[in-house]
Simulated assay, not measured.
Amino acid sequence: MLLSQEDESRIIEMAWEDRTPFEAIDLQFKMQEPDVIKFMRNKLKPRSFKTWRERVSGRNTKHLKLRSKEITRGYCPTQYKNR
Rank of each mutant, 00 (worst) to 15 (best):
76 C>L: 11
45 K>F: 14
64 L>Y: 01
4 S>H: 14
83 R>P: 15
32 Q>F: 03
30 K>R: 06
21 P>R: 00
21 P>M: 02
82 N>F: 15
66 L>V: 04
50 K>Q: 12
66 L>G: 03
49 F>Y: 14
31 M>D: 00
22 F>P: 00
53 R>T: 13
65 K>S: 13
61 T>H: 01
10 R>K: 09
37 I>E: 12
77 P>Q: 11
19 R>W: 01
32 Q>S: 13
25 I>R: 04
71 I>N: 09
31 M>A: 01
23 E>S: 03
7 D>N: 06
44 L>F: 15
43 K>W: 09
38 K>N: 11
59 R>S: 05
2 L>E: 11
30 K>P: 00
3 L>T: 12
17 E>C: 07
54 E>K: 15
75 Y>R: 03
26 D>V: 05
48 S>D: 14
70 E>W: 06
18 D>F: 12
60 N>L: 08
81 K>I: 14
3 L>S: 03
65 K>I: 11
75 Y>S: 06
2 L>H: 09
19 R>V: 01
18 D>S: 15
2 L>F: 10
31 M>Y: 01
17 E>M: 05
70 E>L: 05
77 P>C: 10
58 G>N: 09
11 I>E: 07
80 Y>M: 10
71 I>C: 05
69 K>S: 09
31 M>K: 02
47 R>G: 12
4 S>T: 15
66 L>I: 02
43 K>N: 15
53 R>Q: 15
57 S>L: 04
79 Q>H: 08
43 K>Q: 15
33 E>K: 14
67 R>F: 01
32 Q>I: 08
14 M>Y: 03
50 K>M: 10
36 V>Y: 00
80 Y>E: 08
28 Q>E: 03
60 N>C: 03
83 R>K: 12
46 P>H: 07
60 N>H: 06
8 E>I: 10
20 T>K: 02
75 Y>K: 04
62 K>T: 00
57 S>G: 08
69 K>A: 12
81 K>H: 13
35 D>L: 08
57 S>W: 02
71 I>K: 10
55 R>M: 14
65 K>D: 13
27 L>V: 01
7 D>T: 07
25 I>H: 02
77 P>N: 04
41 R>I: 14
80 Y>H: 08
4 S>Q: 11
34 P>Y: 09
70 E>Q: 03
79 Q>P: 00
72 T>C: 05
7 D>V: 15
60 N>R: 06
39 F>G: 11
33 E>F: 08
52 W>P: 04
69 K>R: 06
80 Y>T: 05
53 R>W: 15
42 N>Q: 13
48 S>V: 12
14 M>K: 05
47 R>P: 09
51 T>Y: 11
23 E>Q: 05
56 V>D: 01
6 E>C: 06
36 V>E: 00
32 Q>H: 12
62 K>S: 00
36 V>H: 01
5 Q>D: 08
78 T>L: 13
12 I>D: 05
83 R>H: 11
62 K>W: 00
29 F>H: 01
45 K>S: 14
39 F>A: 11
36 V>N: 02
16 W>D: 06
63 H>V: 01
7 D>F: 11
61 T>E: 09
18 D>M: 10
7 D>E: 15
64 L>F: 01
50 K>W: 03
37 I>P: 10
30 K>M: 07
1 M>C: 15
29 F>C: 03
12 I>V: 15
81 K>G: 07
30 K>I: 05
79 Q>G: 04
63 H>T: 11
4 S>K: 11
3 L>H: 08
72 T>Q: 03
11 I>Q: 02
8 E>H: 03
